[in-house]
């Protein structure tokens, strides 16, 4: 079964979608969307460095993404607003990465595959890596779930309840780096953040608890990857971008449904003025 490239692609997509869903929820709740971007863009620098040093690309990307995330955490609150800092870091990491790649004469690398992913080229080894990474991230986030949520609400509130907000931030940073390294092959550097954020945002209107939102985000993410894969096969379009487009359409539908739901709630609750 694993000999079919479409089956491997679907499994890889599902693995990334499941790991990205709960993590993406935290990215949305903590307004860290740009943080995800910066970490992902640094990945191309990781690719270039690992090709230069001829180490495993996964390891290179993981290390550079982690360094990037740590650097951003350290620099925050030192004179620049977070969004400015992340804008500078994200794009300069990407630019340095692209420059570094151009020095790699003699090595033939398909830059497009790293920028936009090449899910159809996922091999059995990649699949094992994606599976392990996804399992690691899901267990890490699951294990720290309550503490992460408390730290997301308020740092002082967490501290008073015996939760160290800095440690939870580290857990998130580490998970983010793993997801970036794992998702590189599937959607590429430029679209990783989309796979984190869009399913979580699409799940929001239908949920009353954080747990429900993470589960629904996983379902939406899985639907997007399988649906996008299928659509790319029929339409003969690039797979990574098709997956993200599919997720974006689901997001648009969910926003419309959310608006509709809110209007109904308002209409039914207005007569007695008691929402």
């Amino acid at each position: 079964m694993l000999d079919d490239f479409l089956v491997r692609a679907a499994l890889a997509g599902l693995g990334v979608a499941l790991a990205a869903a709960p993590l993406g929820c935290f990215v949305v709740w903590r307004r860290m969307a740009y943080f995800g971007d910066a970490t992902a863009h640094a990945a191309i620098l990781g690719v270039a460095l690992s090709l230069l040093l001829s180490t495993s690309i996964f390891a290179g990307v993981l290390v550079v993404s982690l360094l990037m995330a740590t650097l951003v955490s350290l620099l925050s609150g030192r004179g620049y607003a977070m969004d400015t800092l992340l804008g500078v870091m994200a794009h300069s990491a990407l630019a340095f990465g692209l420059v570094a790649v151009s020095f790699l004469s003699g090595v033939r690398i398909d830059l497009m595959a790293y920028l936009f992913g090449d899910i159809l080229a996922v091999g059995k080894g990649d699949l094992a890596l994606i599976g392990t990474g996804a399992l690691l991230v899901v267990s890490l986030v699951g294990w720290r779930w309550s503490a992460l949520l408390t730290a997301t609400l308020d740092a002082d509130l967490a501290r008073a309840s015996g939760v160290d907000p800095k440690r939870e931030q580290l857990v998130l940073t580490l998970s983010l780096a793993i997801v970036v390294a794992v998702a590189l092959k599937v959607v590429g550097v430029l679209l990783i953040a989309a796979l984190l954020i869009i399913p979580a945002a699409a799940a929001r209107p239908f949920c009353r608890t954080p747990e429900a939102m993470a589960l629904l985000a996983a379902v939406i993410g899985a639907t997007s990857t399988t649906g996008g894969l299928q659509a790319a096969y029929w339409l003969d379009t690039p797979t990574g971008p098709t997956i993200v487009s599919f997720a974006a359409i689901l997001f648009a539908l969910s926003s419309l449904a959310g608006q509709f739901k809110r209007r109904i709630v308002r209409a039914t609750s207005s007569p007695d003025g008691n929402p």
């Binding site: 307004r31 949520l149 997301t152 609400l153 967490a158 309840s161 608890t209 954080p210 429900a212 939102m213």
Partner: peptide
Amino acid sequence: RLAIDATLPMTVTRFLNLPR
């Protein structure tokens, strides 16, 4: 003051059950 982000769905009961 505690500002809970509007993107975070949270019932009062769930909030009271955090972190324990």
